[in-house]
Nucleic acid binder design. Structure first.
Length: 423
RNA sequence: GGGGAGGUCGCAUAGUGGCCUAGUGCGCGGCACUGGAAAUGCCGUACAGCGCAAGCUGUCGAGGGUUCAAAUCCCUCCCUCCCCGCCA
């Protein structure tokens, strides 16, 4: 959500930001119109309420019965007027809030312009792709042959785009989760959170998934609960409606959760394997920081995600996303691991600074100093990392000619000594 | 799921229609006293909206209602605690 004062004072600046994102800046005029109307009505109704409050107090002290009755009758009329105006205020206010919630975030000036993901900029590529003396296979072949990924039975249970991990496959994922969590906790200073996997509607509004981007969500029939699309949703809302002390910031949290995404719009894309599925596991980092530090915090957030890629010793690259690919962020970077079997770069992490956009929605504030006014803080989040695609990268990069997979060094302690998957 | 008790300012509590402009204690901040501190005293301590400002308005779990006037009365819902039932 944007600050209405910013829209009021610098409408052209806001329009420019919205236009860069490829959206229609007309919403600015809609909001400004509602804002004016809203304040007019508020002033009217509040003046009437002030009158009623004052006269009601007088009434309690009146001795003369007829004078008293006259005032009561008078206030009855005022009360009717107030009731009508209150209704109007509520209607205008609802629409005003709805429009504000639909307004996109403004991109940072340093974000490159673009109209599609092709305009994203590769900042750097780390690590050389391994050279194979055989043709590397895609993970869906290796996984099936080794019996560590069962596609058919996943479909049998839950339909297309669901899969089952078995034996060493399940263990590898569990090892990865524990290892990543431990790395962020012990080396990067994060505190672990184990949140609920279903949340209320207002929580999704807080992170910006609703009201605009609800299409991908799995909602639970009959109750006001939705399966989380990412741990970002419950964790970012942790301190909702609270005022944190400045000394509590920055606050770093890391959470492992499953994620559910009903991506019907991507039907037909990446149908093979586990690259794009309806349920996947992810370790997610979330930061709560003061506004002036958020850009630096974004850089260290990327470092934290990058450390995972480095430790796995798999080639990766860092992308700076253009205005078309920003989502609700102010600025965003993606990390992609190289997968030699399917021959593509896999997005395993998305690291974003949201500025105060989410903080306004979720009412996340901090007090800069004792006695000072509360202010909205800044939120950031980044995957650290998303499990299925890391699994793909490990399977494809660490495959051997005989169809088995070497367990990366860093994971062996978490694998109970297993060094080769499939034996 | 059934029965009971509750939800008031950071915490604890008072408040059964106008004396509530929500009191008190603790905590917190400032000041005084002190060589410094403790103790003590004084002052201040929720959030939001509107307004250039003075100030006004709203919020006592949430939403409706009754009333000239609601923390207080009525209705619906949510949450917490206790007992019973069921259950990993």
């Amino acid at each position: 959500m944007l600050d209405i004062k910013l829209i009021r004072d610098q409408p052209d600046f806001v329009r420019h930001g919205i236009r860069r994102r490829g959206e229609d800046p007309i919403i600015v005029d809609t909001i400004l119109g509602l804002d004016v109307r809203r304040r007019e009505l508020l002033q009217q109704v509040e003046q009437l309420k002030a009158t009623r409050n004052a006269v009601s107090k007088e009434i309690s002290k009146m001795k003369d019965a007829s004078e008293r009755e006259a005032k009561i009758a008078e206030m009855r009329t005022v009360g009717d007027q107030i009731a009508e105006l209150d209704k109007e205020v509520a209607a205008v206010d609802n629409e005003f809030t709805r429009q504000l919630l639909l307004t996109p975030n403004l991109p940072h000036p340093d974000v490159p312009d673009g109209t599609s993901e092709h305009d994203n900029i590769v900042m750097r590529t780390e690590g050389a792709p391994r050279s194979f003396d055989f043709t590397p296979k895609p993970h869906w072949e290796i996984g099936e042959q080794l019996g560590i990924i069962d596609f058919e039975r996943g479909v049998k249970l839950s339909g297309s785009r669901f899969f089952v991990l078995k034996g060493h496959g399940a263990k590898l994922q569990r090892a990865l989760i524990a290892w990543m969590l431990d790395m962020h906790i012990t080396q990067h200073g994060y505190t672990e959170i184990a949140p609920p996997y279903v949340v209320k509607e207002e929580i999704l509004v807080g992170t910006g998934n609703l009201p605009k981007f609800g299409d991908n969500l799995f909602r639970i029939a009959g109750v006001d609960l939705t399966l989380i699309p990412t741990a970002e949703v419950p964790v970012t809302n942790l301190y909702r409606d609270e005022i944190l002390a400045a000394e509590q910031l920055p606050l770093y949290h890391v959470a492992y959760t499953p994620c559910w995404r009903n991506e019907q719009m991507s039907a037909g894309r990446d149908v093979r394997g586990i690259k794009r599925v309806y349920q996947f596991d992810k370790v997610e980092m979330v930061k709560f920081v003061t506004p002036e530090t958020s850009m630096n915090e974004l850089m260290t957030l990327i470092d934290n995600a990058e450390d995972v890629c480095k430790a796995l010793n798999i080639p990766y690259r860092l992308l700076k996303l253009c205005t078309a690919d920003l989502g609700t962020a102010v600025m965003k970077y993606d990390l992609e691991l190289w997968a030699p079997g399917c021959g593509e770069w896999l997005e395993v992490s998305s690291c974003a600074n949201f500025g105060d956009y989410q903080a306004r929605r979720a009412n996340l504030r901090y007090r800069p100093a004792v006695g000072a006014k509360p202010e909205f803080l800044h939120t950031l989040n980044g995957s650290g990392l998303a499990l299925p695609r890391v699994m793909i990268a490990i399977i494809e990069n660490y495959q051997q000619a005989d169809g088995t997979i070497v367990v990366p060094d860093v994971l062996r302690g978490y694998m109970g000594g297993i060094e080769i998957l499939g034996r």
